[in-house]
Write a protein that binds this DNA or RNA. Sequence first.
DNA 1: AACACTTATCTTAGTACTGAGTATTATGGC
DNA 2: GCCATAATACTCAGTACTAAGATAAGTGTT
Lengths: 172, 172
Amino acid sequence: MPTQPTDVNVPREAPPGKVDPAYADALKLFTVLYRAHAAMHERSREDIARHGLTPAEFAVLEALYHRGPLLLGEIQAKILVSSGGITYLVDRLDERGLVTRRASPTDRRARYAELTENGVSFMREIFPAHARCLARASEGLSPAERRQAIDLLRALGKGAETAKGCRGEEAG
Amino acid sequence: MPTQPTDVNVPREAPPGKVDPAYADALKLFTVLYRAHAAMHERSREDIARHGLTPAEFAVLEALYHRGPLLLGEIQAKILVSSGGITYLVDRLDERGLVTRRASPTDRRARYAELTENGVSFMREIFPAHARCLARASEGLSPAERRQAIDLLRALGKGAETAKGCRGEEAG
DNA sequence: AACACTTATCTTAGTACTGAGTATTATGGC
DNA sequence: GCCATAATACTCAGTACTAAGATAAGTGTT
């Protein structure tokens, strides 16, 4: 049970903390990255939800559609879910008849996921509209700016991945 | 119960779908945005998790730390959670003694959230290291590139927000 | 005053995951 | 071959949310 609100003083006093200007750009970058991603993700999610799929389910379908059969672990690395998550997602797509598992002939632990015929025709039907949706959603940038953004985001992402385990210490 | 894997044919045949080059950049942009965000978010999450907080909880604290008391609805809009979500988050931070609610003197429906004294000193203690962590994580870009990325992401986000309800139709 | 409409928060049920652990199979060193 | 270690997918309990609806209070129109 949360505490009850009090009503003693007028709010809108000065904020208790100020941002160190040395880190202002990094924080700003994080914020705009977060919001741009949220907005794009939401456009994508809306479009996908029309077909009763979650973004993660769609990501699995898309990976298989554009790459062909993949090991569950490969999909997992590509769409960034947990190992339990990929099992769950492939189960659900299997139940819908869009995806099926296939044993690896060389490794009895491993399983491929691949689109069923239904899955292929489903993706052939819906993917172009989804691509147009994303193209629309990114019209805030010109084609040249889009290419610029791709390069910058690639470098940012690569750097952030290799900064694994950063602890924010003072010096490096 | 998912279907059992079969082992009839060798995998690695050609992928069933190809990407329309007209939309290739938009799709690529979406992918690198997704991955850059995921990597930055993960660096941030790791740092925050050391203090037993979720990213959303931390986002509430950060908003209050840098802006002072805010209406629940204002925080909600700022950190992009559902109305149920903000109630839940403020409840949890309240239980921890970091945040408290305060009634609005002018609108009896509305409530401000604000940091408690504990909340302020907690943030004063941990925020600088978190800012350094984000700065480290964004070192894949030079300072100039970071400013460029900020501008591009701002434009991208703004465009994606106003493209609300896009349905991916053929022409505009 | 009464009504419809909107706004702000809270409640509740449901869910899409995560994280930790398990079972099975593969790999490399001896 | 045998053992320890690693890799692969699966299981299961837990959770941080969301979506929809309820409650309560404000606003505007008649």
